[in-house]
Design a protein around this nucleic acid. Structure first.
Lengths: 383, 383
DNA sequence: TTGACATATTTCGATTTCGAAATAACTATC
DNA sequence: GATAGTTATTTCGAAATCGAAATATGTCAA
């Protein structure tokens, strides 16, 4: 999200139009008067904007909403045929893509695997294939692409700076590559942060001004929304709590090497612990089944992991004072099997009360959805 | 800082006037054209605002600045006789107040002690006395009061919610009490955050968009500026890192009670450690002298404390990705005696690089100054 | 001294936005 | 059905802001 320097009147108009569309999508239809209230405009001014967007067919009038009293408002919604956006979310093992129409309805979802050992170039080709598959067979114009990228990024230059779990992934000019290929604007965001955006706009963060998204997959990261804004940090590295040090024995020389949260409790670490507890090979599906079945030997594994996250959440609570903590990623799919011990671990540390802790309900495509929404919300009508 | 819903044209004009004054104070004089650039206005519009403020004598034209080429700009500065603001900063042991004039120059500084055991009412009276002493003997009108309050606050209601180190300090309606007494608007802010504001506007945070102020006195807190904005949190409790758990033995039952950063390394804890190392009574002045003299037995005490803060800064770095960490409070007055081991402790944890760590240079009154600036910047000309 | 440049500021008609009042569209009640 | 009450939307003159051009005020070099 570039720190846009609003300058000319035309740019201001375009920015207000984009904001207006954003609010329509967020609230699933608003009247002119409601728009005026939300955008801090006079009703007459909102009317002018609406008329212009209606004329250009970016929005359409929907049904009239019922009211107890008074003239019923005419609800306005984005025109689904205005165009499409693609959101992509990938990390070390998989690529997820989703297509949404101009009114933010999901049109299609696609998934591809990344094999261990795939080269950076190979991964880039796979991403391009995934996008092509996602957009084929629909005539509506493609207007933008959003990508949730693992690791650190430079959102202004559109470069993926680095990610530990893909060998050779460093300074990849991802935005330029995709915009050259598909001829549309491409926006990058860290993938934990794009999940946080999805939560902010459609999920458990709806209407909240302060929450933390705790994301666990191959790596561990936090997407932080403070005062309604997503934190990025000076170099786009905010939220890298996977590298937080945790108590416990370290790998290697004890005097200088610290054990990190990712060492202790990332998804691979939990699966490894589960394997040694169950004495059999475990993938995530097996872990989920074992947890759902209430398998005895799995519970201590989850409790031990939950304790690490409990410490992290306690610290996040003190530093940010969030209203809510949202768990996203596979662990959220374990339901109360993981959430209960997690809440217990936080409670043990915070006798004076703690933020709500909830599982995300958006599912695996939340990062892709957030990335698509990012592109959507950045988009402006040409003027 | 109330989340102001800008509504009427009059309010917008007043808000722009306040912003204009803020920029003049921040930059110590700007021309009409520079103001237009900074406030995203057309030069002609900036001229209209300037003319109005000149007419009302809130600003005055200063000398013409030199230029290599072109017509030299006429610099504008706030009129020092526009009025005065008081900033107060207090915690468990002392009250500091500073008076600044309309151009943000410090006019007077006052300090009072709080005795251990003073009641809440007694402390409030002492604060009122301090303000009265600060403002006496100056005819210019008092326009506002800012207060840096220890612990948690409700900035909207103007109530101090609670602070561990003053017995009985809970839900104190401080803003109303002072505004009834002095008949001016009163703004509250947590005192670590008012120090962070002082750093942001006048100190080591000038021009930075992401930094953390690490404040150590009786308690320990962090003032966090992310994306140029001060974080407050959902309940105004952001930055309470003094309650972060640190490794080490705990007080009481080891299974449920955790040791906190404040237990381990607040100023009283450091003084206690110094006393047992030096086998003599130590106050902060004695500690500073011992450190300045390079006293052998003191160094391990500082190193041990620095190690705790090193861990905290490492975590802050990962979660916020700040450009800089600013140490404020007494420990900053120890110079390199504390800063060196602190930097070493952070370096040991962050092989991949870490933010700059610097001592504040604003001195003991920085919290009071920040609070005064808060009131100043909130102030708007009546329309 | 004069003219070429450069930058600051003002002028002034055009555009945008506002604010208050008028009008529209609905429900409930007589 | 009329009518009152209520909220949505539009109308229209006033205020704010813009943008481009004109004007002001300095430096520098011939």
């Amino acid at each position: 999200m570039a720190r846009s320097a609003i300058r000319t009147k035309h740019q201001i108009v375009a920015r207000v139009e984009a904001e207006l569309l954003r609010h329509l999508r967020l609230r699933d239809g608003l009247s002119r008067v409601e728009l005026a209230r939300e955008l801090q405009l006079a009703p007459s001014t909102a009317g002018i904007y609406v008329d212009r967007l209606l004329r250009d067919r970016f929005i359409v009038e929907s049904h009239k909403a019922g009211r107890e009293q008074g003239r019923p408002p005419t609800l306005l919604v984005p025109n689904p045929d205005g165009g499409r956006f693609v959101g992509v979310d990938f990390e070390a093992r998989s690529i997820l893509a989703t297509v949404v129409d101009f009114s933010q309805q999901v049109v299609k979802q696609v998934r591809r695997a990344i094999r261990e050992g795939d080269s950076v170039e190979r991964i880039l080709v796979r991403i391009e294939e995934t996008i092509r598959t996602a957009i084929e067979g629909d005539q509506r114009p493609l207007l933008g692409i959003g990508v949730g990228v693992p690791g650190t990024i430079d959102p202004v230059e559109g470069i993926a700076r680095g990610y530990d779990f893909i060998p050779g992934w460093k300074d990849v000019p991802l935005a330029r590559r995709l915009s050259d290929e598909f001829k549309v604007p491409v926006y990058l965001e860290n993938n934990i942060r794009s999940m946080a955006m999805a939560e902010l706009w459609f999920g458990q963060g709806l209407g909240l001004r302060n929450f933390v998204c705790l994301g666990v997959r191959t790596g561990i990261g936090a997407g932080i929304v403070a005062d309604g804004r997503l934190l990025r940090g000076e170099h786009g590295c905010a939220g890298e709590i996977g590298k937080w040090h945790v108590p416990g024995t370290s790998r290697g020389d004890a005097s200088t090497v610290f054990r990190t949260l990712e060492d202790a409790a990332s998804l691979p670490a939990i699966l490894a612990a589960a394997e040694s507890a169950m004495k059999t090979e475990m993938d995530f599906a097996a872990l989920r089944e074992a947890a759902a079945a209430g398998e005895r030997k799995i519970l201590p594994v989850l409790e031990r992991a939950a304790d690490f996250y409990g410490g992290a959440i306690h610290q996040l609570q003190l530093i940010f004072d969030p209203h809510r903590v949202i768990l996203v990623g596979p662990l959220a799919e374990l339901g109360s099997a993981f959430l209960d011990p997690l809440q217990e671990a936080v409670r043990r540390r915070s006798p004076g009360g703690h933020p709500e802790i909830v599982n995300s309900t958006l599912g695996q495509f939340s990062g892709a959805f957030g990335a698509a929404a990012l592109a959507l919300h950045q988009w402006q009508p040409a003027r």
